[in-house]
Design a protein around this nucleic acid. Structure first.
Length: 464
RNA sequence: GCGUCGGUGCCCGAGCGGCCCAAGGGAACGGCCUGCAAAGCCGUACAGUCGCGGGUUCAAAUCCCGCCCGGCGCUCCA
């Protein structure tokens, strides 16, 4: 398959370092506050890629770090009179809950920064020893200009970077060059610290990911992903650290586009964010709605999210559900392995071109239309069911769960069935006033009744 | 300012040299179905041609140049 590599700035053939296995490192959250929709996009993007690769029979070693020590966590702990560990643990739990609600699979490894201090110190040691880094009273810094190809990921030379930074970077007399950045920050009063050959302190942000990704996935791991706002400085600096340490870093770089709202990036600092929790509280259907929205936009593109686009996505999700419901009502056998090859082929083709989920979703919806048509036609049930099963499976590949007939599991199923039966009888007696009254009553309870070729079906209007 | 990505129908959003008189989703309209609906299917309209102006090519939404507008980045950031 082909993927777009940020470093090479072009579409390239993706060849995993080891056949049948893909190693993926995607930057995870700093746990100090509510995760918002921007985090959801990032996590969901790599979740979708992982699911697709796994569906293709590849083993995906998906790693995402958890940054549990940094300025924001320290500040929050200070404000709340708690330890950094307590703050991090609390917000990690909130993050996990949000990810679960969004049906995002847990990465296989989730290294915490504080558990990898030794590895980071060892890496810094290597950098100091080989002259790539220098220590002083305020910490240890990477000598950026000594690193071959520094800035290649952002396609800028050190001089170009320095020029752009001139107006904004604080002058720091501790650094030999304004471009240099901290690998190790010397202890400040009141901060948690770890011992190191350069005195007590804590690791810089970038060394975290460099040390953990290399330690867990090894040299030359396959994919490194993250939001495109991390290309510089974070990923650029991680890469510089690895190169300076003589390690082979990620072989391909993936960067997802931002989630915008009101024309701007959703972010904590702009204070224009919506938390995942509040989105789900608004409407549980938003979990799948958001996933569909992401699937219908290419991962590298900016996605503008507003109430209107979310409402449109809801309709798409309902369309998927309606087809599945119709098929289930027509006796669909979920254990059947019958599929429609041409759809699967086109789906693969789309995905193998840099994870072309929008086109792949178009295939899914076309298959839904074909399934609906075949289901309505009544004859050739086998073909109709194969189409329905194909559409359901392909949506599921993306983690987009298609609601099947859940009526049987409903607590109130007995009562509702009775009302539906009463309505059917009223209809048979041509007492349409009564039939409509029952339908309205059910509607008031959030239940929709539809008459199909194989009898009436009901469902809760708003599901997951 | 520098770099980078983008500007496609009423809305969202694919396509990135010929298969495009431009996918898919949403919304609209008509038909079929229905007691009426809903869902579904079929069809129609909506892009007078893909931000604007040049150019390359037998051929451009797709490549090149210039301009306008917007996003992101330029050391908190997914």
């Amino acid at each position: 398959m082909k993927i777009y590599d940020t470093l090479q700035d072009t579409l390239v053939d993706f060849v995993p370092r080891k056949e049948g296995e893909v190693s993926l490192y995607a930057c995870g959250p700093t746990v100090y506050s509510h995760p918002h929709l921007g985090h959801a996009r990032q996590a969901m993007t790599y979740d979708i890629m992982r699911r697709y690769l796994e569906w293709n029979g590849l083993h995906v070693h998906h790693v995402a770090n958890v940054t549990d020590i940094d300025d924001k966590i320290i500040n929050r702990a200070l404000e709340e009179g708690r330890t950094e560990g307590e703050v991090a643990a609390e917000w990690k739990a909130v993050y996990d809950e949000a990810m679960d609600a969004l049906n995002i699979l847990r990465p296989l490894d989730r290294p915490h920064a504080t558990e990898y201090i030794d590895e980071m110190v060892a890496m810094i040691h290597t950098l100091v020893d080989n002259g790539s880094a220098y220590a002083n009273d305020s910490g240890v810094y990477l000598r950026v200009r000594s690193v071959e190809g520094y800035g290649a990921l952002v396609h800028r030379t050190p001089d170009e970077l320095a020029e752009g930074a001139g107006a904004r970077v604080e002058v720091d007399d501790n650094k030999e060059d304004p471009l240099d950045f901290a690998l190790w920050k010397a202890a400040k009063p009141g901060e948690p610290t770890w011992d190191s050959p350069w005195g007590p302190g804590r690791p810089g942000w970038h060394i975290e990911c460099a040390a953990m990704s290399l330690d867990i996935l090894g040299d030359g791991f396959d994919l490194h992903g993250g939001g495109n706002d991390l290309v510089f400085p974070h990923h650029t600096n991680e890469r510089a650290e690895a190169i300076a340490a003589g390690r082979e870093f990620a072989r391909y770089w993936l960067h997802n586009g931002m989630l915008n709202t009101g024309g701007e990036k959703m972010s904590k600092s702009l204070n224009n964010f919506q938390t995942i929790q509040s989105m789900l509280d608004e409407n549980p259907l938003n979990a799948r709605g958001l996933r569909l929205l992401l699937l219908q936009t290419h991962y590298r593109k900016t996605l503008e999210l507003d109430d209107d686009s979310m409402a449109q996505a809801h309709e798409g999700v309902k369309r998927l559900d309606a087809m599945a419901r119709k098929a289930a009502n027509g006796g669909l056998d979920m254990t059947s392995t019958a599929r429609v090859d041409d759809a699967i082929e086109r789906f693969r083709e789309a995905m193998d071109h840099d994870f072309g989920t929008p086109e792949a979703m178009a295939v899914v919806f076309e298959t839904v239309r074909r399934a609906n048509g075949a289901l309505d036609g009544g004859d050739e049930a086998d073909q109709a069911h194969a189409l329905a099963l194909t559409a359901i499976e392909l949506a599921n590949v993306f983690g987009l769960q298609v609601g099947l007939d859940e009526a049987a599991d409903d607590d109130a199923a007995g009562d509702i069935d009775a009302m539906v039966a009463a309505r059917t009888e009223a209809k048979a007696n041509k007492d349409f006033g009564e039939a409509d009254r029952i339908r309205d009553e059910l509607a008031a309870q959030g239940i929709t009744v539809e008459d199909t070729a194989s009898g009436p079906v009901w469902y809760r209007t708003c599901v997951r």
